[in-house]
Design a protein around this nucleic acid. Structure first.
Lengths: 223, 223
DNA sequence: AATGTAAACTAGACGCTGTCAAGTTTGGCC
DNA sequence: GGCCAAACTTGACAGCGTCTAGTTTACATT
């Protein structure tokens, strides 16, 4: 019958995880479709943007029928949530306040790490924090959990600094966490969206940001 | 909703069609369609969100044919740009750094003004600063001009403080403008999108923000 | 007052989208 | 070997943005 060999199954992403699977001929049951869909979706997202990612194109990219993806993701939102979750997984390996100490130099490093992640993964970043998913409660429960875990990790790092008296004791750790995260997030968004066009200013902005944070955290200063 | 809402003649006209009134017989040429479209678009945007705003529904709301809006807006992007521009017009009347001075109390007021605008007009705010329009250079020239004017107004206010020696002279006014705007923007986005769910924390976050700004601007402190 | 033109508006069509319903194939368990 | 549920298929529907070609009208020129 129809035993065609189809070589297009998201190989580019397959080398990320050294799967020793050799794609044999196409069978009715794919066997690994969810993974392939997720990988292809991220790859399409990165090259064509969120506008260019449709369920139908995604299905085609995995060489399955239009509606096959719906057996692995309830709807498009769930697919996007899965992508965002993948983003948070990567985020936690790239940006972690627990690896630094409250000092001007390390605050600068942290700021740069955050911005580097956001700018290198801008389409995914937008999904992670954008209104697309968060507004009107369309986030998966597991995405919500993971996202809050990311923030909590940051907040507790700062709380630890506070408890260890490494930062100004007049600062409320939670409030500072919320507001400083806002700064990092806002800068990322403005740069990603091209509202701040001048890419050369990024370094200077990072330095200003680190200074701003330190001027608040510095235990040697009293207000 | 809020105080700046405009009269909505488009909807009023919608009511006419099933009440079959004799007056204001619908004529082929509308006469004021662009204004009505823009008003209705904003109103739909506010109630149904960006997802609920389609060119076809907008046309129907103004009781004209599907394609009539295209005689007043080249495409949907141009319509959205016009909405965003309207947003900036309102923004400049609500949030203006020139009206305040660099002091803890006034910084707090300014922060609250900014957040109030963002939260009261969240759908419009998202259009003003979101990736929808800014990414891939799909902004109207006139929108770009107006948006940059808004930022420049803020930046020059801070530059004036600097020149008048009202703030710490070690601070670069432009960099501070960029980063502090980022803080306000980031906080607005996180609150709008519901990533930070706790609405009660807003006041405390505003205070923390104002403190953060002042700890950097305070001329009495040296780093 | 008649005429010509351009602007405002219309209906029809195209290709795209997300997703539902109903039918087909198949791997794995009894 | 037989059965079931999961994986996958085609077909269909309503909605979308927007192009094209045609119709109606306001208005300036004669």
């Amino acid at each position: 019958m129809n035993n065609e060999q189809e070589p297009n199954q998201g190989h580019a992403e397959c080398l990320l995880q050294d799967t020793s699977l050799k794609t044999s001929k196409k069978s009715y049951h794919h066997g690994d479709l969810r993974t392939v869909l997720l990988d292809n979706a991220i790859s399409i997202l990165r090259t064509d943007g969120i506008q260019g990612l449709s369920m139908r194109k995604l299905a085609t990219s995995a060489d399955v029928s239009r509606t096959a993806p719906y057996h692995h993701f309830k709807d498009k939102k769930e697919l996007l949530c899965a992508i965002a979750e993948e983003g948070f997984r990567l985020f936690s390996t790239r940006v972690d306040a627990k690896t630094i100490e409250p000092a001007p130099a390390t605050l600068l490093i942290f700021t740069k790490q955050y911005l580097e992640f956001a700018l290198k993964n801008k389409e995914v970043y937008e999904l992670m924090f954008g209104s697309e998913l968060w507004q009107q409660h369309s986030t998966t429960e597991s995405l919500k959990t993971r996202a809050h875990a990311s923030f909590r990790q940051y907040a507790t790092a700062i709380k630890d600094w506070h408890e260890d008296k490494l930062i100004n004791q007049a600062v409320d750790p939670l409030r500072f966490a919320q507001v400083s995260w806002s700064t990092l997030h806002g800068m990322s968004r403005l740069l990603i969206d091209g509202v701040y066009v001048d890419g050369e200013a990024i370094d200077a902005m990072c330095e200003e940001t680190a200074q701003l944070f330190w001027s608040q955290l510095n235990p040697a200063v009293s207000f």
